[in-house]
Design a protein around this nucleic acid. Structure first.
Length: 565
RNA sequence: GCUCUCUUGGUCAAGUGGUCAAGACGUCGCCCUCUCACGGCGGAAUCAGGGGUUCGACUCCCCUAGGGAGUACCA
């Protein structure tokens, strides 16, 4: 068999050689980390994607800022976006924009690759960088050039198996309980077709795919995974398809060609790819490419309420998987990032405790510290981290953040938030102390928490304590209003509450009431709660005096008068 | 079925032959206190099971169980 002749028959219009492409895409600067995100344009990006993208981004971008050896080059790594649109069935309009914008919200941006298209710009043309095209659908000639080379070396061949034949082979294999697929004896027929047979088939218009001719050596080999360490797998023996009947490459082939030509150094991808690693390794060998470092991330899991088992987060059942969920709830991107980092690198939490004010970029992220078991998503933890993150954000910025959130998700409160200095004072309440309050988790919850500061949203939602009769409650409020002086400082203010407490037969010290409940109606805590409810509508809030200072005397008197009638 | 992979408290996890098995979140109790939040102190709670190897196993080896994934002309 003359393989060169066969290659010409199969790829008559391919003139460029692999060498041409090697020249076109020269090696990158030595020592820098090149990573990539390769989404298929399904238009849906979830927490798992973010998790992976974050690993890529950290790997490529942290280098320059750290003081490690790599930084000597003074150059940061490169993180690029490649659109893996080899399956047109998956294509969704506007998906590229979704990916870029979603990640941008979390402060993750690309150095090269697909970009936001300009107005009216055709799909697949918006990109930047010297290693493109970055849309796989535009790379057909490149894949074919390498496929042609493989054929001309006898390392790949056309296969004319029809769908029916494939199905028959499969059911036979299943019946025989052996591995499914095209390998060994199942591959022989098409592997050994003569040039004339192939030519006849093609002239007859028969559809065919290009398969790699596997070495068939299934002995185990070892490989170092950036996350998992040493892994061992059996060698591949499948004659995996590299070009589909429509001439478009499969993921396997596109991955190997692209990551080589774009000079990717670290391939970060989900563990669902672990199984096809032997195929990729063989492809790298057949093509004579050096291997990148693979980093197979664990899948994010959650406990299924119905079965009690761990299971993969699914986009249908789990709203928290969607990135939109966090935007809706108003989680701060910084909080989500910090949370992700704590599950990504187990030593991050410790580092954060020691460096509470340091920038995330100063943390030395390593794939070795990543867990290889699937982490459970923990909303409690996110909330806890979020509290700390929000505390560090200045009140002015927090106000901006809340307004931005409202603009998108609760526009009807926007007019209320216009008084920025009022809003800022509210948000800063109790934060400027040795033991600052940590009241805020996310924008939605922030609004709930502060809504009573706005008359339109002020409602009495809690009941007065049972220790206080309705008559007493009225009397407490009446006396409170009578003696109220807005210029009182906090201790003068509280002294007056103490007086009211005592006069009405309540204990000034809560402990006294606790010890001798029979001697008092209740304690100063109950009296305060009555006032708190009158003013805030709820039994729990930050310090009453401080709130009053922000609320202002008019509002305060109005609310109490309203209740006294 | 076959193949790969994972397994330390409820959760995230330190740990690489000798530890009373860190820490964080959550939870419970106490303290602080006008409520809540914050903070402080304390408690309960973990090496999946069984065999080896060893003076000694969470740590090394084997088996079993359980979880997860893959087994496409999808990625």
């Amino acid at each position: 068999m003359d393989y060169n002749k066969l290659a010409e028959l199969l790829f008559p219009n391919i003139d460029k050689t692999p060498e041409d492409y090697e020249l076109l895409y020269p090696a990158r600067e030595k020592g820098i980390v090149i990573t990539r995100l390769g989404p298929s344009p399904t238009g849906f990006i979830h927490l798992g994607n973010l998790y992976g993208a974050f690993v890529d981004e950290r790997l490529a971008h942290q280098v320059a800022k750290s003081d490690r050896a790599d930084a000597k080059t003074g150059s940061s790594g490169i993180f690029y976006l490649r659109i893996e649109d080899t399956d047109d069935k998956r294509f969704v309009e506007g998906a590229v924009e979704t990916v870029i914008n979603s990640l941008k919200f979390f402060d993750i941006s690309f150095d090269e690759g697909a970009t936001l298209p300009g107005p009216g710009e055709e799909y697949g043309t918006a990109e930047s960088g010297n290693y493109g095209p970055y849309f796989q659908s535009k790379r057909g000639p490149i894949y074919r050039a390498f496929a042609k080379r493989l054929v001309s070396r006898g390392k790949a061949y056309p296969c004319f198996l029809t769908e029916e034949e494939l199905a028959d082979i499969r059911s036979q294999q299943e019946a025989d309980k052996c591995t499914t697929g095209i390998y060994g004896k199942y591959a022989e027929k098409n592997r050994n077709l003569s040039y004339e047979e192939i030519e006849t088939n093609i002239n007859a218009g028969k559809s065919y795919v290009i398969r790699m001719k596997s070495h068939g050596d299934t002995s185990y080999f070892k490989l170092i995974d950036g996350i998992r360490g040493e892994i061992s797998m059996p060698g591949n023996n499948q004659d995996t398809i590299i070009l589909k009947a429509n001439g478009i490459p499969t993921y396997h082939f596109a991955h190997v060609i692209d990551d080589h030509l774009m000079r990717t150094t670290h391939v970060v991808r989900g563990e669902e790819w672990l199984m096809s690693l032997p195929v990729h390794v063989e492809l790298f060998e057949k093509l004579g490419f050096p291997m990148p470092t693979y980093c197979h991330t664990a899948v994010l899991m959650k406990i299924d309420e119905e079965t009690g088992n761990k299971r993969k987060l699914s986009k249908r059942k789990d709203p928290e998987l969607s990135l939109d969920y966090y935007r809706n709830e108003g989680y701060h991107p910084q909080a989500v990032k910090e949370y992700l980092l704590t599950i990504l690198n187990s030593n991050f939490e410790e580092w954060r405790a020691e460096n509470p004010d340091a920038d995330i970029d100063d943390f030395n992220f390593t794939t070795e510290k990543m867990s290889s078991a699937g982490a459970l998503f923990d909303l409690n933890k996110l909330n806890d981290i979020s509290k700390d993150v929000l505390l560090k954000i200045p009140a002015e910025d927090l106000a901006d953040f809340l307004v931005e959130w409202a603009r998108e998700f609760k526009p009807n409160i926007l007019p209320l938030l216009e008084d920025r200095s009022y809003l800022t004072k509210i948000l800063d309440l109790g934060r400027d102390e040795a033991k600052p309050r940590k009241d805020f988790i996310c924008a939605k919850q922030m609004w709930d928490f502060i809504s009573y500061f706005f008359d339109e949203y002020f409602v009495i939602q809690d009941r007065i304590p049972e220790q206080v009769s309705d008559e007493d409650a009225k009397e407490i409020l009446k006396r409170y209003l009578d003696t109220y002086d807005h210029s009182d400082d906090q201790s003068a203010w509280f002294d007056k509450i103490r007086s009211i407490t005592e006069e009405l037969g309540y204990a000034v010290k809560p402990k006294d009431y606790k010890k001798h409940p029979e001697e008092y109606k209740g304690s100063v805590a109950h009296v305060s709660t009555v006032i708190r409810i009158a003013l805030m509508g709820r039994g729990q809030s930050p310090d009453v005096w401080s709130i009053q200072q922000i609320l202002g005397e008019d509002r305060l008197r109005a609310r109490i008068s309203e209740l006294i009638g």
